[in-house]
Simulated assay, not measured.
Amino acid sequence: MRSWLPQGFFARTEIEVKRSRFLATLARADSEEQARGVVAQVRGTFPDARHHCLAFIIDLPDAQPIERSSDDGEPAGTAGMPMLEVLRGAELGHVVAVVTRYFGGVLLGTGGLVRAYSDAVAAVLADTPRVVPQRRILWGLDVSPAEAGRVQGALLNRGLEVVDADWGATVRLTVAVADPDAALPVVRELTQSELTPVDLGVRIVEVPLAP
Protein backbone atom coordinates (compact mmCIF):
# COMPACT_ATOMS: atom_id res chain seq x y z
CA MET A 1 0.00 0.00 0.00
CA ARG A 2 1.22 3.52 -0.82
CA SER A 3 2.11 6.12 1.76
CA TRP A 4 -0.19 9.06 2.52
CA LEU A 5 0.26 12.61 3.70
CA PRO A 6 -0.43 13.10 7.42
CA GLN A 7 -3.92 14.15 8.49
CA GLY A 8 -4.43 17.89 8.00
CA PHE A 9 -1.24 18.31 5.96
CA PHE A 10 -1.06 21.47 3.83
CA ALA A 11 1.99 23.02 2.17
CA ARG A 12 2.78 25.53 -0.52
CA THR A 13 5.93 26.50 -2.41
CA GLU A 14 6.76 28.63 -5.43
CA ILE A 15 9.11 28.33 -8.37
CA GLU A 16 9.73 30.82 -11.20
CA VAL A 17 10.36 29.89 -14.83
CA LYS A 18 11.05 32.69 -17.34
CA ARG A 19 9.14 35.17 -15.18
CA SER A 20 6.08 32.90 -14.88
CA ARG A 21 5.28 32.11 -11.23
CA PHE A 22 4.13 28.58 -10.35
CA LEU A 23 2.62 28.27 -6.86
CA ALA A 24 2.29 24.60 -5.90
CA THR A 25 -0.16 23.64 -3.17
CA LEU A 26 -0.12 20.13 -1.69
CA ALA A 27 -2.70 18.78 0.76
CA ARG A 28 -4.15 15.63 2.27
CA ALA A 29 -7.50 14.62 0.79
CA ASP A 30 -9.46 11.52 1.85
CA SER A 31 -12.18 11.87 -0.79
CA GLU A 32 -12.78 13.44 -4.19
CA GLU A 33 -15.00 16.00 -2.47
CA GLN A 34 -12.16 17.02 -0.13
CA ALA A 35 -9.75 17.25 -3.06
CA ARG A 36 -12.07 19.54 -4.99
CA GLY A 37 -12.55 21.58 -1.82
CA VAL A 38 -8.81 22.23 -1.73
CA VAL A 39 -8.93 23.31 -5.38
CA ALA A 40 -11.78 25.72 -4.61
CA GLN A 41 -9.82 27.11 -1.67
CA VAL A 42 -6.78 27.76 -3.86
CA ARG A 43 -8.93 29.44 -6.51
CA GLY A 44 -10.36 31.68 -3.80
CA THR A 45 -6.91 32.57 -2.50
CA PHE A 46 -5.53 33.45 -5.96
CA PRO A 47 -8.59 34.62 -7.93
CA ASP A 48 -6.53 36.69 -10.41
CA ALA A 49 -4.34 33.79 -11.58
CA ARG A 50 -4.76 32.54 -15.14
CA HIS A 51 -4.52 28.80 -14.40
CA HIS A 52 -5.18 26.48 -11.47
CA CYS A 53 -4.08 23.06 -12.70
CA LEU A 54 -4.75 20.03 -10.53
CA ALA A 55 -4.03 16.39 -9.93
CA PHE A 56 -5.20 14.10 -7.16
CA ILE A 57 -5.13 10.46 -6.11
CA ILE A 58 -7.63 9.07 -3.62
CA ASP A 59 -7.04 5.51 -2.39
CA LEU A 60 -10.07 3.24 -2.02
CA PRO A 61 -10.19 0.01 0.01
CA ASP A 62 -10.08 -3.06 -2.25
CA ALA A 63 -10.53 -0.98 -5.40
CA GLN A 64 -8.59 1.07 -7.92
CA PRO A 65 -7.77 4.59 -6.70
CA ILE A 66 -9.60 7.64 -7.99
CA GLU A 67 -7.23 9.68 -10.17
CA ARG A 68 -8.11 13.01 -11.73
CA SER A 69 -6.17 15.80 -13.43
CA SER A 70 -6.94 19.06 -15.23
CA ASP A 71 -4.92 21.39 -17.45
CA ASP A 72 -7.32 24.29 -16.66
CA GLY A 73 -6.77 26.06 -19.97
CA GLU A 74 -3.12 25.14 -20.55
CA PRO A 75 -2.40 23.15 -23.75
CA ALA A 76 -3.70 19.61 -23.40
CA GLY A 77 -1.34 17.27 -21.59
CA THR A 78 1.10 19.94 -20.40
CA ALA A 79 0.01 20.39 -16.79
CA GLY A 80 -2.46 18.07 -15.06
CA MET A 81 -1.13 14.76 -16.36
CA PRO A 82 2.54 15.61 -15.71
CA MET A 83 1.53 16.62 -12.18
CA LEU A 84 -0.33 13.34 -11.75
CA GLU A 85 2.72 11.40 -12.95
CA VAL A 86 4.84 13.06 -10.25
CA LEU A 87 2.34 12.00 -7.58
CA ARG A 88 2.29 8.46 -8.98
CA GLY A 89 6.07 8.36 -9.02
CA ALA A 90 6.13 9.45 -5.37
CA GLU A 91 3.78 6.51 -4.58
CA LEU A 92 1.39 8.78 -2.70
CA GLY A 93 -2.32 8.36 -2.07
CA HIS A 94 -4.92 10.60 -0.41
CA VAL A 95 -3.17 13.59 -1.98
CA VAL A 96 -4.14 16.61 -4.05
CA ALA A 97 -1.78 19.00 -5.83
CA VAL A 98 -2.81 22.34 -7.32
CA VAL A 99 -0.37 24.48 -9.30
CA THR A 100 -1.39 28.08 -9.80
CA ARG A 101 0.32 29.94 -12.63
CA TYR A 102 0.85 33.66 -13.08
CA PHE A 103 1.98 34.22 -16.68
CA GLY A 104 5.23 36.16 -16.97
CA GLY A 105 4.95 37.21 -20.60
CA VAL A 106 7.27 34.58 -22.08
CA LEU A 107 5.83 31.52 -23.82
CA LEU A 108 7.34 28.31 -22.44
CA GLY A 109 6.24 25.87 -25.16
CA THR A 110 4.73 22.49 -24.44
CA GLY A 111 7.96 20.93 -23.20
CA GLY A 112 8.68 23.90 -20.97
CA LEU A 113 5.20 23.75 -19.46
CA VAL A 114 5.49 20.02 -18.75
CA ARG A 115 8.82 20.58 -16.97
CA ALA A 116 7.56 23.60 -15.04
CA TYR A 117 4.40 21.94 -13.72
CA SER A 118 6.29 18.75 -12.90
CA ASP A 119 9.06 20.67 -11.14
CA ALA A 120 6.54 22.70 -9.12
CA VAL A 121 4.93 19.55 -7.71
CA ALA A 122 8.33 17.95 -7.09
CA ALA A 123 9.40 21.07 -5.19
CA VAL A 124 6.43 21.05 -2.82
CA LEU A 125 6.87 17.29 -2.32
CA ALA A 126 10.48 17.66 -1.18
CA ASP A 127 10.99 16.52 2.43
CA THR A 128 7.23 16.01 2.87
CA PRO A 129 6.38 13.86 5.92
CA ARG A 130 4.44 10.69 5.21
CA VAL A 131 2.44 8.04 7.01
CA VAL A 132 1.82 4.42 6.11
CA PRO A 133 -1.71 3.02 6.56
CA GLN A 134 -1.64 -0.27 8.45
CA ARG A 135 -4.41 -2.66 9.43
CA ARG A 136 -4.96 -3.20 13.14
CA ILE A 137 -7.34 -5.53 15.00
CA LEU A 138 -9.13 -3.85 17.90
CA TRP A 139 -9.43 -5.71 21.21
CA GLY A 140 -11.46 -4.71 24.24
CA LEU A 141 -9.88 -5.56 27.60
CA ASP A 142 -12.12 -5.27 30.66
CA VAL A 143 -10.10 -4.61 33.81
CA SER A 144 -10.86 -3.22 37.27
CA PRO A 145 -10.43 0.51 37.87
CA ALA A 146 -7.70 -0.25 40.40
CA GLU A 147 -5.68 -2.10 37.74
CA ALA A 148 -6.46 0.08 34.71
CA GLY A 149 -3.57 2.51 35.05
CA ARG A 150 -0.98 -0.21 35.60
CA VAL A 151 -2.27 -2.37 32.73
CA GLN A 152 -2.50 0.56 30.32
CA GLY A 153 1.05 1.67 31.07
CA ALA A 154 2.36 -1.89 30.79
CA LEU A 155 0.63 -2.39 27.43
CA LEU A 156 2.18 0.79 26.07
CA ASN A 157 5.60 -0.25 27.33
CA ARG A 158 5.25 -3.54 25.46
CA GLY A 159 4.41 -1.79 22.20
CA LEU A 160 0.60 -2.27 22.21
CA GLU A 161 -1.32 0.88 21.34
CA VAL A 162 -4.20 1.77 23.69
CA VAL A 163 -6.58 3.86 21.57
CA ASP A 164 -9.39 4.38 24.09
CA ALA A 165 -10.29 3.87 27.74
CA ASP A 166 -13.96 3.77 28.84
CA TRP A 167 -14.30 4.11 32.60
CA GLY A 168 -17.20 2.63 34.52
CA ALA A 169 -17.69 -0.12 37.08
CA THR A 170 -15.01 -1.81 34.98
CA VAL A 171 -12.63 -0.14 32.55
CA ARG A 172 -12.75 -1.13 28.87
CA LEU A 173 -9.33 -0.58 27.31
CA THR A 174 -9.36 -0.65 23.51
CA VAL A 175 -6.07 -1.94 22.15
CA ALA A 176 -4.88 -1.90 18.52
CA VAL A 177 -3.10 -5.18 17.70
CA ALA A 178 -1.00 -5.98 14.62
CA ASP A 179 -0.24 -9.65 15.44
CA PRO A 180 -2.95 -11.31 17.58
CA ASP A 181 -0.97 -14.54 18.11
CA ALA A 182 1.96 -12.62 19.53
CA ALA A 183 -0.17 -10.15 21.49
CA LEU A 184 -2.43 -12.58 23.36
CA PRO A 185 0.30 -14.04 25.65
CA VAL A 186 1.46 -10.49 26.41
CA VAL A 187 -2.07 -9.39 27.31
CA ARG A 188 -2.58 -12.38 29.61
CA GLU A 189 0.79 -11.82 31.25
CA LEU A 190 0.13 -8.15 31.92
CA THR A 191 -3.42 -8.69 33.17
CA GLN A 192 -2.28 -11.69 35.22
CA SER A 193 -5.25 -13.70 33.98
CA GLU A 194 -6.56 -15.94 31.20
CA LEU A 195 -8.50 -12.94 29.94
CA THR A 196 -10.00 -13.40 26.46
CA PRO A 197 -10.11 -10.04 24.66
CA VAL A 198 -13.39 -8.86 23.10
CA ASP A 199 -13.16 -8.56 19.30
CA LEU A 200 -14.08 -4.98 18.34
CA GLY A 201 -13.35 -5.19 14.62
CA VAL A 202 -10.64 -3.65 12.49
CA ARG A 203 -9.32 -0.16 11.92
CA ILE A 204 -6.63 1.47 9.79
CA VAL A 205 -3.96 3.31 11.73
CA GLU A 206 -1.45 5.72 10.21
CA VAL A 207 2.15 5.03 11.20
CA PRO A 208 4.77 7.72 10.51
CA LEU A 209 7.19 6.68 7.80
CA ALA A 210 10.82 6.93 8.84
CA PRO A 211 12.77 9.53 6.83
Rank of each mutant, 00 (worst) to 15 (best):
V96W: 09
A40F: 04
G44I: 06
E16Y: 15
S3A: 12
L173I: 07
F56D: 01
P6G: 04
I58Q: 06
A178D: 06
V205P: 01
V114G: 00
V187E: 00
V42T: 08
R203V: 13
D179G: 03
L87K: 05
V131H: 09
L184N: 01
R88P: 02
P185M: 04
T13S: 15
F56E: 00
M1F: 11
E91A: 11
L190E: 10
E206V: 01
M83D: 02
A154I: 01
G8F: 08
L87I: 00
L60W: 03
A35R: 15
V96K: 12
G93V: 06
V42H: 09
A63F: 03
R115P: 09
G112I: 02
L113H: 08
V17W: 13
R2Q: 12
S193A: 04
G44L: 08
H94F: 06
P47H: 06
A122T: 13
P129D: 01
V163I: 13
G89C: 09
Q34Y: 12
V106T: 14
S70K: 04
I66H: 04
V186S: 00
D119T: 03
V175S: 04
R50E: 07
A35E: 09
L190Y: 10
F9V: 04
L184H: 03
L195G: 10
R88G: 03
Q41K: 14
T196P: 11
G109M: 11
L184V: 00
E14R: 15
R19D: 03
